[in-house]
Simulated assay, not measured.
Amino acid sequence: MTSPSSLPYRPCAGAMMINRERRVFVGQRIDNVLEAWQMPQGGIDPGEDARAAAIRELGEETGVAPEHLEFVAEAPEELTYDLPPELIGKVWKGKYRGQRQRWFLFRFTGADSDIDIATPHPEFRAWRWADPADLPEMIVPFKRALYEQILHAFADHLG
């Protein structure tokens, strides 16, 4: 059996989308029974630019069109998280130990009616705007440190 530490990280892009009140879009995953909420994120396709992947993922998961997004900032470094041992082998066909992520902050310039999570391949069953400070408590526990790092990276734009 392959050791989890020998598995690579899945390349991924994440998007923190804030509204005019500097509240953050979070969605409740459709495939998880936990009450956890998360920001949009997803894999980077081979040859795809990380920021382009973040914008694509926002569209795929929230229905938000690129014209309703204003780029604000990119986290200065790649962030990683490890899956808990019980999920390795069950997620991503067992190919990865976790994710390495490039995070981007976008200002949402549209109206709430421009958000539609009933996309062709829905990932969220519900969504809402959340206070940034509440994010670490809303996410699944194994991603808590990651969300604290994201908040730190974008602190100058959230206050």
Rank of each mutant, 00 (worst) to 15 (best):
T109E: 00
L7G: 10
W92R: 08
L87M: 14
M138G: 11
P66S: 12
V72K: 06
L7S: 08
F108V: 10
P85F: 02
R97P: 10
Q149W: 01
P132E: 07
I117K: 06
R56K: 11
E57N: 15
F124S: 09
K93H: 14
E86Y: 11
E67D: 15
V91D: 06
G94C: 09
Y9K: 06
G110V: 11
P122L: 00
E123V: 13
G27C: 05
T119H: 02
L158S: 13
A53M: 05
F142G: 11
D131C: 06
C12S: 15
N32V: 03
E86M: 05
D31I: 02
L34H: 14
G98T: 09
F106I: 07
G42T: 08
P76D: 15
E35S: 14
A50Q: 04
E57A: 10
N32H: 10
P141Q: 03
Q28V: 04
T80N: 03
A75Y: 09
R22W: 00
A155V: 06
N19C: 08
L34T: 15
Q101A: 12
P46W: 00
P136A: 09
E78M: 08
G43Q: 10
D45G: 11
I139E: 05
A54L: 07
P8K: 04
F124C: 05
L146V: 08
R56M: 02
A111P: 04
L135R: 09
G42C: 05
P120E: 06
A75P: 14
A36N: 15
M17G: 13
Q101I: 14
R97M: 04
T119F: 01
G63I: 04
T80W: 00
E78R: 12
D114Q: 09
A130N: 10
R125F: 01
D116Y: 04
A15R: 04
E60Y: 10
L83Q: 06
P46V: 11
L79P: 09
S3I: 05
D134I: 01
G42P: 09
A50G: 13
F104I: 09
S6V: 04
S5M: 01
A126I: 03
A133F: 02
G110M: 05
D82E: 13
A65M: 13
M138A: 12
T2I: 08
T62N: 01
K143L: 06
H68D: 12
A52H: 12
R10E: 11
R128A: 13
G110Q: 06
A36M: 00
A65G: 14
E70K: 12
A15C: 11
I115L: 03
Q41E: 06
A126Y: 06
G98R: 03
P132G: 12
V24Y: 01
K95V: 09
E48W: 05
D114A: 11
D31Q: 04
G89M: 00
I88G: 12
E57H: 15
